[in-house]
Design a protein around this nucleic acid. Sequence first.
DNA 1: TGATGAACACCATGTTCATGA
DNA 2: TCATGAACATGGTGTTCATCA
Lengths: 121, 121
Amino acid sequence: MKSTFVIRQRAFLKLYMLNKAEEGNLYGLQMLDDLQDHFRDLGYRPTKSEVYKSLHDLLNDGLIVRHPIHKQGTEMQTLYIYRIGDKEKVKAYKDTIKFEIDRSISLLKRALQDNYSQKRQ
Amino acid sequence: MKSTFVIRQRAFLKLYMLNKAEEGNLYGLQMLDDLQDHFRDLGYRPTKSEVYKSLHDLLNDGLIVRHPIHKQGTEMQTLYIYRIGDKEKVKAYKDTIKFEIDRSISLLKRALQDNYSQKRQ
DNA sequence: TGATGAACACCATGTTCATGA
DNA sequence: TCATGAACATGGTGTTCATCA
């Protein structure tokens, strides 16, 4: 297996996209807004392109599907609502990501332990 | 302040380099070996170049110093032992890194909470 | 060959530009 | 202007090459 440090931002975002696709009727930029809000207190502000790339990845792999919506109003606006796709794949993907997150937390906690605990003296 | 996802590998390694410089008389490749061993169970295997770059960063910023050692034996081998440099700076740097690690852990734990806890029916 | 280091290449990610309605 | 998307540029990191003893 490839040696990686901690989980990649892309994978982290894809996990959130999946859950947003499961829950509600959100389009891309709404998800972005939600996430920026959700992580503001932790100083993390995901970007537009990462969110779109995450969505495209998931689409390509069949984990989500989307369909176009037309906003009510005089303006015809193209925008896409995302829903869950292949449930098996989603389950499997989430499992891998959970493993990655757990592993990352272990790594970071070990660093705290190794470098910041009281020296026995 | 710049928005970042989780802590960078480089910063993570620099923290370990500092502690290794505080503790013992290790040279570069020994630190690498130690770390690869230390993280093997978590599937993380830092590379030579990352370790060297970390050491060079710390040297440039005065957080560590080094001096050449000659291995006993007929072979004259150039290798460098690292020691702690500016103690104030080290303290300050460690504080920043601790903050970063704590923040990263919070981010990851939030992801577990948000995406893997039982849905209330 | 063992240790240090630089050069290079690749991949993850942020910023800017393009398009349609 | 809003939403989507691609193109481009930068930065982090891994792999390969160079050097010295």
